[in-house]
Design a protein around this nucleic acid. Structure first.
Length: 728
DNA sequence: TGGGAGTGCTTTTTT
DNA sequence: AGCACTCCCA
C-alpha cells in the first residue's frame, strides 16, 4: 500500500486517494498520468472501497488497456483479466455478446472493420443501383459513422433536400443490410450497446449498480456518444474519474469532442479538479517551447507545464533545400547521435503525414540504418489474412455477405461477375443472404456456386475442431494455401497464413473459452467468434522487428502517448504542418489551425532530452515539387530557446536562398526568364507579404511568376506590374 | 475469366 | 510517385 503511493507528487497523490466522488484530472503531457490511473484503481480496491467487478476502466487503444492491466496486476494480487478494463469498443462488444438477444443481434454477430464497412457500402450501392460518384462509399461511411457517433438513427437525422434525404435513405438501407447479415461496424458497437442499456431498464440498473467506479483515460478524445454512454452507466451513482488533456486533443477530425471535458465538469458538478502540471519527461527548454506554442490557442482550459529537470539543450532547427537533403541530414545527425551512445530505439522521426516517410526511409535504407515505420498495414488487415478470416466468418455465419463476396471467387473458381449478379438478384428477390440464395441460381454459374456452397458446408462441418486446427483446415481446404504456393510472390503471404494459425493457437492459450465474468456468464460464443472479434478489434501490432534497436518512424498522431530521448520533427512547412486543409476547417467554433497546433504541442512534448525541428524549401509531394514557406509554428518557438544549425531564417522566410545547404548536390538553377528571380526564392510583396516563387512562365516584359504567399494564397503575378523584392 | 494497361486520388486514425 | 480501382482485350 505504501509502495503504491510512494514516489507520487502531491497532486498525483491527491488524485489517487480522492474520496469517492466525481473527478476530472487535467494531466499535462509527461505529467505521470500512468502513475495515477492504475494506482487509483489499486487504491480503491485495496482500501475496500470497491471490489474488482465494481470497476469499469475505459481506454481508447488496446495498448493502453493492456498497459493498465499489466500495471494493475503488478500492484494487486487479483485476477485482472476478469475485470472490465478495456477499450470502448472492446467493452461494448463484451456487453453485446452477453446480451445479444436483447440487443437484437445473432449470437455470433461479426464486426466489420473500416475496410469491411466500405465494401459493404459499395455492395449496397450496387444492389440499389445508386451512382457511387454521387455518393462515394468513403464519404457515405463517414456520414453514417458521424451520425452513429452522435447517437442518431436514420429517423432522427434531419434532411432538408433530396440529396440529403437520399443519403439518409442509404444510411437506413445500410442498417437493414447489416442487420440481415448479422454484422456490426465499430460505431454500431457503441450505439447498439448504448441503446441496449437505455431501453432495457433492469439491465441498465444491473450495470449501474455493479460499476461503482468508472475511470476514463484520454477523456479529451471521447466523442458525444461515448460520453452519453459513460453518463448512462454512471447514472446509478457511480463515481466518474476522468483523466485528460485538452491540449492533446488531436482527434476532433474524427468526432472527438473536447467539449466533453467542460460538459462533464458542469453536468456532474465535479468537485475535484486536479491539475498535473509537473512534467517528468522533458527538459526545460523543450517544455518552454511547448508552452509557448500552445499559448497561441485561444480556447484552452489553461495549464502550464513546469519541468522536473533542468533546462537542458537548446532546440535545434535545420533548414534544407529539399526533402531529400533534409532526410540525408537527419541520417548524418542520427549517426552522430549513435556515436554519442544514443540507442536507435530512443530516437524518433516524426512527420505530419505518412507520405513523408518515403524520403526518410529512402535515406535510412541507403545508409543501412535499421528503422521501423509505425502505422503501416497491420497483420489482420493483410489481404491474405482477411481472405482466411472471411472463410472463418462464413463458418460462424453463412449470412455474412461481406465475407461471402470476398471469397466466393478467391481463389478463382470460375464464378464471375455474371454469376454474382444473378446471385445478387436472387438474394434481393428473396430478401436473403447471398449464401441462402445459391439454390435459386440456375445454369453453369449456379453449379459452380453450388460447389462453393458445398465447400462452405464442409468447412462448417469442421467447426468442432480446436481453433488452430480449424484455421489450418480452412487455409488448406479453401485453396488459399495452394493459390499462394503457385504465386511467385506468395511466400510472404504463406508465412502470414501460418502466422495466423499461430495467432489462433496463442489466442486460445491466452484467452480461451471459459470467460467467466461476474454474474452474467455463458453467452460469450465460442473460440471462433471471439477470435474473429479479436481480429477486428485488435488489428494486430504493426510489423516484425519489434525488439530490434531501430529508429522509430511515425506520424505525430501515432506518437501520442510515447516518449523518446531524441525527437526529430521534420517537414515543418506551412501547408504540410500545419496542413493546408486544416486552415479552412472549423469545428465547434474552433479552427483547424488550433488542432494542428495541439498536434505540434504533442510532437514537441514527445522529446525528453533533445529536439530537432527541420524544414525544406522544396518537397516532392504527389509527384509534384512543392515550394512551401517555413511553418508558422517555428515562429512560435521563442528565439532564446533555439540554436539554428543553418543561418537563421527571417520571420516566415528562408535563410538559404540558392545553394543547397546539405550536402552540396549539384542543382540546376532554374531561372524565370532572366528576371533575376528563381523558383524557390522568397520574395516580398507590398500587399500579400512574404511568399515563395513556385512557378514561372514567359520572359522579358511578359515574365510571370506564381507565388505561394501562405496565408494570402497562391497568386500569379506579372513581374512588370507587381513590385516584388527578393526577401533573402 | 483474368491479367494488363489506363485512371484517379492522396491529412491525421483507433476501434 | 505510388496505390487502388476500372476497363478492355485475349
Amino acid at each position: 500500500m505504501n509502495s503504491l503511493l510512494a514516489h507520487l507528487n502531491p497532486p498525483q497523490l491527491a488524485a489517487v486517494t480522492l474520496p469517492p466522488a466525481h473527478a476530472l484530472i487535467l494531466a499535462g503531457a509527461g505529467s505521470g498520468k500512468t502513475r495515477v490511473l492504475p494506482p487509483r484503481i489499486a487504491w480503491l480496491i485495496s482500501t475496500g472501497q470497491v471490489s474488482p467487478p465494481g470497476v469499469l476502466a475505459v481506454t481508447f487503444t488496446n495498448k493502453a488497456a493492456k498497459e493498465m492491466q499489466t500495471r494493475l496486476a503488478g500492484m494487486l494480487p487479483i485476477n485482472v483479466r476478469g475485470m472490465w478494463i478495456g477499450t470502448f469498443h472492446g467493452l461494448c462488444n463484451r456487453l453485446l455478446r452477453a446480451h445479444y438477444r436483447d440487443a437484437g443481434l445473432p449470437q455470433l454477430f461479426q464486426i466489420l472493420d473500416s475496410a469491411d464497412q466500405q465494401s459493404a457500402v459499395k455492395r449496397l450501392l450496387k444492389s440499389l443501383n445508386v451512382d457511387d460518384e454521387k455518393f462515394p462509399p468513403r464519404e457515405l461511411c463517414q456520414f453514417i459513422n458521424a451520425q452513429k457517433e452522435q447517437g442518431l438513427r436514420p429517423a432522427a437525422v434531419e434532411a432538408w433536400d433530396d440529396w440529403a434525404r437520399k443519403r439518409v435513405g442509404l444510411y437506413e438501407a445500410y442498417e437493414a443490410q447489416c442487420q440481415r447479415e448479422g454484422v456490426v461496424d465499430f460505431a454500431e458497437l457503441l450505439l447498439r450497446s448504448y441503446e441496449l442499456l437505455e431501453r432495457n431498464e433492469p439491465l441498465c440498473r444491473h450495470y449501474q449498480e455493479r460499476f461503482r467506479h468508472i475511470l476514463v483515460d484520454e477523456f479529451q478524445d471521447t466523442n458525444k456518444l461515448q460520453y452519453k454512454w459513460l453518463k448512462l452507466l454512471a447514472g446509478g451513482g457511480a463515481h466518474l474519474f476522468c483523466v485528460g488533456d485538452d491540449d492533446q486533443s488531436i482527434y476532433a477530425f474524427r468526432g472527438a469532442d473536447v467539449g466533453n471535458m467542460a460538459d462533464f465538469e458542469r453536468e456532474f458538478k465535479v468537485p475535484n479538479l486536479i491539475r498535473l502540471e509537473q512534467n517528468y519527461r522533458s527538459h526545460g527548454n523543450i517544455l518552454d517551447a511547448a508552452n509557448a506554442i500552445i499559448k497561441n490557442n485561444p480556447t484552452r482550459l489553461g495549464k502550464n507545464l513546469w519541468p522536473a529537470a533542468g533546462s537542458g539543450e537548446p532546440i535545434r532547427i535545420y533548414e534544407s533545400y529539399s526533402d531529400g537533403d533534409e532526410a540525408r541530414w537527419i541520417v548524418e545527425e542520427v549517426k552522430a547521435l549513435q556515436r554519442d551512445g544514443h540507442a536507435r530505439a530512443e530516437i524518433a522521426l516524426l512527420y505530419r503525414s505518412n507520405a513523408q516517410s518515403r524520403a526518410l526511409e529512402h535515406a535510412l535504407f541507403n545508409a543501412g540504418l535499421p528503422y521501423r515505420v509505425y502505422g503501416g498495414l497491420r497483420f489482420f488487415e493483410r489481404a491474405e489474412i482477411k481472405h482466411a478470416l472471411a472463410y472463418l466468418r462464413l463458418i460462424a455465419n453463412t449470412d455474412d455477405d461481406t465475407a461471402f463476396a470476398r471469397v466466393v471467387n478467391f481463389p478463382a473458381r470460375g464464378i464471375g461477375a455474371r454469376s454474382l449478379e444473378n446471385l445478387q438478384d436472387a438474394a434481393k428477390a428473396a430478401n436473403s443472404s447471398l449464401h441462402a440464395a445459391i439454390p435459386q441460381v440456375a445454369g453453369a454459374g449456379g453449379a459452380k456456386l453450388a460447389a462453393f456452397a458445398r465447400l462452405i458446408e464442409s468447412l462448417r462441418e469442421a467447426a468442432y475442431l480446436p481453433l488452430p486446427e480449424l484455421v489450418a483446415h480452412v487455409v488448406d481446404l479453401s485453396g488459399l494455401r495452394a493459390h499462394y504456393q503457385n504465386e511467385k510472390e506468395g511466400q510472404e503471404r504463406l508465412a502470414n497464413l501460418d502466422e495466423l494459425i499461430n495467432a489462433a493457437a496463442s489466442f486460445v492459450a491466452e484467452e480461451g473459452t471459459p470467460n467467466q465474468d461476474g454474474e452474467i456468464t455463458g453467452e460469450f460464443g465460442n473460440d471462433l467468434s471471439s477470435f474473429l472479434a479479436h481480429a477486428s478489434l485488435e488489428a494486430g501490432e504493426h510489423q516484425a522487428g519489434e525488439g530490434d534497436d531501430a529508429l522509430q518512424l511515425m506520424t505525430v498522431h501515432s506518437a501520442k502517448g510515447l516518449e523518446f530521448n531524441v525527437v526529430f520533427i521534420s517537414g515543418l512547412e506551412d501547408g504540410l504542418f500545419p496542413h493546408e486543409n486544416s486552415l479552412s476547417e472549423t469545428r465547434d467554433g474552433k479552427s483547424g489551425l488550433e488542432e494542428e497546433r495541439r498536434l505540434m504541442y504533442v510532437a514537441v512534448t514527445r522529446a525528453r532530452q533533445r529536439l530537432y525541428l527541420s524544414f525544406a524549401q522544396t518537397r516532392m509531394l504527389h509527384g509534384q515539387t512543392r515550394y512551401n514557406l517555413p511553418s508558422r509554428f517555428l515562429d512560435e518557438v521563442p528565439e532564446e530557446l533555439v540554436k539554428w544549425l543553418t543561418p537563421r531564417a527571417g520571420k516566415g522566410g528562408f535563410a538559404v536562398s540558392s545553394a543547397p545547404t546539405y550536402p552540396a548536390t549539384s542543382r540546376r538553377s532554374e531561372s524565370s526568364g532572366g528576371s533575376g528571380f528563381r523558383i524557390g526564392q522568397s520574395v516580398m510583396h507590398a500587399k500579400f507579404g512574404l511568399g515563395v516563387i513556385i512557378n514561372a512562365e514567359g520572359g522579358g516584359s511578359d515574365a510571370r511568376v506564381q507565388v505561394n504567399f501562405g496565408n494570402a494564397g497562391i497568386k500569379w503575378l506579372a513581374l512588370a506590374v507587381a513590385k516584388l523584392e527578393a526577401a533573402n
